[in-house]
Design a protein around this nucleic acid. Structure first.
Lengths: 235, 235
DNA sequence: ACCTGAACACCGTTCAAGT
DNA sequence: ACCTGAACACCGTTCAAGT
């Protein structure tokens, strides 16, 4: 922690040069994810990465061409954490439900990282695994061809948008709490309450909402709609 | 355009000091939105705001305490653009459908601004108008109390998450096109195609998907589910 | 809730030089 | 597809000074 001191001239080890290959994509990605978890979104800098890894800030450029590419690698890592351990169940509905909940929980556990990445196409290996797993379940539901890709988008759009937006809100809340604010929720106290009667009447109820319950309801709606339409098509 | 030149000593007007009150929250917000539209997300800086408004970069601090507060004002402006001209239709379903499409199109027209703001609670006047309008339609559908707020979230979550995520993807695409990249879409060419059979089989279909069509389908699913449940409750 | 200019601490990226 | 240190252009924010 208290390494860089210019006390110097003493016994070596002021900054023990890293030996070749001690930095890899994987260690950098892991450090980046940890920094995002601990310091939130503005915390991910080359300086902090260097400190965390005991390397010069610019050493990262040997492994990634830019900060954005590090974020894309973090994005793929997040997808990997979501599907690691996933096994298709016998029921395609259970499979998709499982994948949907995995995404929500991974994003909620890493809100800052999810916020910056959930809308990106990573083209990484884990994204391919996830897309393939979703398409596999949709094929088992009875969909093929263009229809299968349409249903893929209905499902993955809902999962990514909703889980990602939730993560973004959690990240904002954590940041504003760190700054001493608590005013992030939707309890409105308008200056002219008579202009917004429905908002004022609903004020107490806004506090009690569980967003994961709403997500579950939306996932069920999509799955049952998918089942209904698939049966219609088969008949 | 070519104002700041230190040719100086010539006829005055090198930088004609602004008269008091020529800067307002509204002009700053309008300039910020224009900059985001023209230069994308990293383009919104105090320097550019100053240039655009003919003012010193630091003059903004008289009107907003931070860059983030400018973004929140842009967020409320975006909501205002969405609902300006909105009139509740006789049918609550048509009302909600109208509000849903307005959000999508506003966000799609201002992708950079939407990307940074769609998940924020602005507490501004336009947000209040929008929340009130949604709750009003939901009450006409027959919902009250906690149930109404639950349905509010099902609807507004879908609208904001999906439209906002779409805007974020459009913004990424515009940025990568500006940098000469075209690889933003989901046509996958994996190194080991045999590992991802469904992905490879669906490659052509990924190109043809219209995301607004998918959004429309999801909005219809939520509205008809809302209608069904409301009738069950009334009986 | 005025506007400007200098100054500060920080940030991503480049590049010549060291192993 | 090695690691470091100096340098560059930029960025948000603060603050004393000008109207």
């Amino acid at each position: 922690m208290t390494t860089t001191r210019e006390s110097v001239t003493q016994a070596g080890a002021a900054s023990p040069r890293l030996h070749r290959g001690s930095l890899t994509k994987q260690t950098i990605v892991a450090a980046a994810l940890g920094i995002l978890d601990d310091h939130g979104n503005p915390g991910l800098t080359f300086a902090r990465l260097g400190k965390e890894l005991g390397a010069a800030p610019t050493a990262m450029y040997r492994h990634f061409p830019s900060r954005d590419e590090i974020l894309l690698a973090v994005a793929d890592e997040l997808i990997g954490m979501s599907i690691d351990g996933y096994e298709p169940s016998e029921s395609w509905m259970d499979s998709l439900r499982d994948l949907a909940y995995r995404a929500w929980h991974t994003f909620a556990a890493h809100p800052a990282a999810a916020t910056q990445t959930f809308f990106r196409v990573t083209r990484g290996p884990n994204e391919l695994r996830a897309v393939n797993a979703i398409l596999e379940a949709i094929h088992r539901a009875g969909w093929t061809g263009t229809e299968a890709v349409f249903q893929y988008h209905v499902f993955s759009n809902l999962v990514l948008s909703t889980s990602g937006t939730h993560a973004a809100r959690v990240a904002v809340r954590q940041e504003s709490e760190a700054n001493g604010n608590v005013e992030w929720n939707q309890e409105y106290y308008p200056a002219h309450p008579e202009d917004y009667p429905y908002v004022v009447a609903a004020r107490e109820d806004f506090r009690t909402i569980n967003l994961f319950e709403i997500y579950k309801g939306q996932v069920e709606a999509v799955l049952s709609q998918m089942a209904r339409k698939a049966q219609l098509q088969i008949q």
